[in-house]
Nucleic acid binder design. Structure first.
Lengths: 163, 163
DNA sequence: TTAGATTAAATCGTACGCGATTTAGATAGG
DNA sequence: CCTATCTAAATCGCGTACGATTTAATCTAA
């Protein structure tokens, strides 16, 4: 545990006390913004037959395939308990296939099918449409990204190890 | 549809094209940060017998009770389909009670029980502990809140109406 | 007033999301 | 070897999440 933990136990500074509400605001704003962004994706992803988690799994696979389920778990921060059925659905849709790694039979290797690779073309129109629908100026987007990057980095280091 | 929609249909500016990756980064960072924050709350809320969505429902009730299910729906941005069973679980735990509004029998009024009000005391320690565990300096938290506020405002106005 | 529309909430079906357990394959130490 | 441990993934149970449908109550206009 870092030295920051020490200042937690005892008396809160006025700043920390004021931060109490701040925290609630941030956490709820985060929770709210995240689920609303997911809702914004829904109508764009539905024609592709994908949910948002399935979409980010496909993004990871378009980036690099074949790859193991564990590698997707690390990349997406999702549990095996979430990924296993999700990948099974993608397989049922004919977008990926799954097979045991002959080198290590514990591993499962996920790869894109021809249909999975083909889907990338229609999916490529999604992000620009999202940026457009959000309608925020570029500087705002950049500073949001920066703030989120710092938060995720802090979560890496402190409380929330890995995924 | 606002006038911003027009600029979407036709040619993308270089900025918009560059924003494509930015969007993916922001959406995933948002998604990731939100679920990791929820994980950060989990060990603190477990002793209280609450999940994170149950916790924000209690926060809303500590703020104002009694109130209708619809009022919670608006405040939390959650669906009736999510809230109904969630509130039923809070009722089963003896933290709230639910009854029909005599003035309008369609409405259901949720109110805190004595146990529900009492829980506020132990819950009050949670936010400061979260701020501590995240370990970000106050200015970073403030700019994050500001960026999220702008995003949520944009989602109110554009794509994501209400909840 | 009464049929039709609107509204509040519940219910249903499907898909996450994750902790805990299980299964099966790899690895290490004796 | 052979057992103990570790690891990758699947499975299970419970609790969100939400679109779609249903139910019941209110409102509205002819």
């Amino acid at each position: 545990m870092s030295d920051k933990d020490e200042t937690c136990e005892n008396g809160l500074s006025p700043d920390a006390l004021r931060a109490t509400t701040l925290d609630a605001q941030i956490c709820f704003a985060l929770y709210s913004a995240s689920s609303r962004m997911t809702k914004l994706y829904r109508p764009l992803l539905e024609p592709l037959g994908l949910t948002y988690p399935q979409y980010i799994a496909m993004l990871a696979l378009w980036e690099k395939a074949p790859r193991s389920v564990g590698s997707l778990k690390e990349a997406l921060g999702l549990d095996f308990g979430t990924l296993s059925p999700l990948l099974k659905r993608l397989e049922a849709q004919g977008l990926v296939d799954r097979r045991r790694d002959p080198k290590d039979e514990r591993r499962v290797i996920v790869d894109l099918t021809e249909a999975g690779r083909a889907l990338r073309v229609s999916a490529s129109k999604v992000p620009e449409e999202i940026v457009c629908r959000v309608g925020l100026p570029r500087e705002t987007m950049v500073s949001l990204r920066e703030a989120l990057r710092q938060l995720n980095a802090a979560l890496d280091e402190n409380g929330a190890p890995k995924a």
